[in-house]
């Protein structure tokens, strides 16, 4: 990491959604966690509060010196000593038992030996099976025949966020074998997509990238805000934010663009399970913005955004649901 570049401008602190939220006061901040604490002999001095970060990359985007803050924070997180937080311990326990972070509810498995694998990720197979079903239908209607394989397990990203590297590597090995049977891998979770590309070296595509240029329809009425997922815009590609708006616009949805649409919902980085009160507070901030704007709801392309915003009372649709929803 190019850590010698810091000039203490504080831009990362001003960009951090956690520090900007009244509930985030215990987070030491991206500068302490990513730049300053790593310079000490004992890295772990910041303690578990270093995990109060949603890994949204806003700090990295804001840094005028181009520092790879997220990578540095992840490194420090992996060096923390001490016990896992209760929520994280549960998550790791689940993965160790059955290969996913949450209990699997989905039962529409398809193992037909197709060339394309749809990889919904743990939340899509657990808490938001409707999201998975809509994306699957959407793919089918686009003529993309696909498997949804029971053997494809957690991508490992949540484990890497809390330094549980060996188990994550174990998952990677097992998934790599499954992936090798397919020509194309499509995901509906930007976190999974980023993990597959960055860590697995697999050319996974997020559904937004698949839908680029497609001719779709929507029956949605009223005005809709966008929640541009962090790992989509700041992880995969900044062009995806406009892609999301463009796809919906072309499909006839009245999209309301807002400056805060790409700020973190609070659901990433292990926050949902580790510090749910902070996740919730961040999401409530966004829900308040939607209320003030008077929109019908918000459309996103990430199961964590869907889950977190939904829990705080927003009407959330995933892209798959927005496009296929019948009036």
């Amino acid at each position: 990491m190019n850590e010698g570049r810091c000039v203490k401008c504080g831009s990362c602190l001003r960009a951090c959604p956690v520090l900007n939220d009244p509930s985030g006061t215990q987070f030491p901040g991206p500068r302490t966690v990513g730049v300053d604490a790593p310079r000490f002999l004992e890295k772990g001095s910041v303690g578990q509060n270093a995990l109060r970060c949603t890994m949204c990359h806003a700090c990295e985007w804001a840094c005028p010196s181009g520092m790879t803050l997220t990578r540095s924070m992840l490194q420090l997180r992996s060096e923390l000593s001490g016990d896992l937080l209760p929520g994280h311990r549960r998550m790791v326990g689940n993965v160790a038992s059955f290969g996913r972070t949450v209990a699997t509810e989905f039962n529409g498995w398809r193992e037909e030996g197709e060339r394309v694998l749809y990889f919904p990720g743990c939340i899509g197979l657990g808490r938001l099976t409707g999201l998975t079903e809509s994306v699957s239908s959407l793919l089918t209607s686009l003529g993309i025949a696909h498997d949804i394989s029971r053997e494809a397990l957690c991508c490992g990203s949540p484990l890497l966020k809390i330094g549980v590297t060996e188990l994550a590597e174990d998952l990677r090995r097992r998934n790599a074998e499954v992936f090798s049977r397919y020509d194309r891998i499509i995901t509906s979770c930007p976190g999974c997509t980023y993990q597959l590309r960055e860590v697995y070296g697999v050319e996974a595509e997020h559904i937004i990238e698949v839908l680029r240029g497609s001719d779709l329809r929507s029956n949605l009425e009223g005005r809709w805000a966008l929640q541009v997922p962090c790992h989509l815009k700041r992880g995969l590609s900044p062009w995806t934010a406009d892609d999301l708006a463009a796809i919906l616009g072309k499909a006839g949805v009245d999209v309301v663009r807002m400056p805060e649409e790409d700020s973190c919902c609070g659901g990433g980085g292990g926050m949902l399970s580790g510090f749910p009160e902070t996740s919730g507070s961040l999401a409530r901030g966004k829900v308040e913005i939607y209320r003030r704007a008077g929109v019908e709801g918000v459309i996103t392309a990430c199961p964590f955004c869907s889950l977190n915003l939904g829990r705080e009372g927003a009407r959330v649709l995933d892209i798959g649901e927005a496009i296929t929803l019948k009036h």
Binding site: L13, R14, L19, N20, D21, P22, G24, T25, P28, G29, R31, T32, G285
Partner: peptide
């Protein structure tokens, strides 16, 4: 009270 690293805008929203 606002922590020194938090922008003051965080508490005045």
């Amino acid at each position: 009270s606002v922590p020194p690293d938090a922008p003051p805008t965080s508490s005045f929203r």
